[in-house]
Amino acid sequence: MELPRHWRLQNQRYGLVGEVCDQCGVKLFPPRDVCPSCAEPAHEQYTFSGRGQVYSHSTVYSAPAGYEEYAPYTVALVKLDEGPMLTAQLTDLGDQEPEIGMPVEMVTRRLRAEGEQGMIVYGYKFRPVMSQGS
């Protein structure tokens, strides 16, 4: 059971909470406590808006253990509006084909379950920005 490691990361997984570098001000996600740009500590928390664009995407047909029930599913590199890039699944695509440059927004979804009895791991995924005012 990988319970502690998932629990430890809930803040960033549920709320897209990253960091700002104390020194150079660059915004970091995933949070890493040490700024990769200037190697100074980054402690201040920063909650990302959850808006971004698809930098690249792929649909996985041959899934690793624990993800078989979701295949085929789409994974992507998403460039957040605030700068950093992250890896996440695209969800709720419906009949829509994923595209590079597609505007997306963060949602909280099931990432996986550790078997029938195990814990459910929740975290961020992204979907095409929902149209409003229909």
């Binding site: 029930e69 949602v107 979804r109 929740y122």
Partner: peptide, 13 residues
């Protein structure tokens, strides 16, 4: 609901 949705994820949104 989609495969990755449940009452928790739907409630969050």
């Amino acid at each position: 609901p989609g495969l990755d949705e449940d009452v928790a994820t739907m409630s969050v949104e």
